[in-house]
Amino acid sequence: MKASDFLYHRPESVPQVLGLLRDYAGGARILAGGQSLMPMMNLRLWRPAALIDIGRIPDLERLEQKGDVTILGPRFPYWRIENDRVIAERLPLLARMVRKVGDRQVRNRGTIGGSLVQADPTGEMPLGTLILGATIHAESIRGRRAIPVEQYFLGSYATAIEPDEMLVAVEYPRHPAYFSFAEVNRRHNDFAVVSVAVAGDRAADGTWHNLRIGLGGVDETPVLALAAMRRGEGTLLQAPDIAQMGILAAEHIDPPDDFRASADYRRHLTRVHLTRVLGSMLASAGFREE
């Protein structure tokens, strides 16, 4: 379990990173917290020709507030998502979900950018970012572009980021007023068997709007449960609504069948936990389930 040979660079600025990325033409990887990258390299599953360590570049851990919008730098660490008061107020779903990421050691080093580039289909930050409808900003020598999160995850450990691009910022729009989250693990903070997150706003008449329902561990990428979202949008989320949303969500996924759980069981858990999570979101809005 020793990595194969690679070159190591520690540039001082983002333009230098972009130059190196171009020079290696897809052969280089960016090193931030290293919590996913280093194990993959030590197992020799990934063999980058070079590592580009962005650890010394100033300003990549920034947290910007622009009206309702919150922007995180690529090296914004998990531990700050977990502990920062601004995050607790502005992105409470992420603060809640990050506690299910790895262990304390991983959270001390891992970063939001690293997690989104890794794109683990069971990952908490990818799912949370999807639910919150964020925009991913990527930059290369060719220029800068904004990728809506719905178009960002392309497959298991695959994203829309091109080999010469660097993820430079994650932009979160206004956070919905209510949210809830549940995750099933085989053991404490293991990869999710199934994770379910919901968020939405409630109008004065009690109807729910901007509903977002996301599922992790049930497909190649984190997914939005679109049919269930449509079914719930504008309703009071009464018991029959919720029951049907659970069924719809379970019908529209293609969960893996592996030693963590069977596809059947993941489908079942998705239905049960979506109904429970919706129930707890309702409860957080002052409603009690009948």
Partner: peptide, 29 residues
């Protein structure tokens, strides 16, 4: 509760032979 070394019946290979995939309890469990 959770530990089990599993072999794939078709390939005869160990399918969960790493600390990531072998569910030894952690102190939290």
């Amino acid at each position: 509760l959770s530990e089990e070394l599993r072999y794939d019946r078709e390939t005869g290979q160990l399918i969960n032979g790493s600390m990531m995939d072998y569910f030894a309890l952690t102190c939290s469990d």
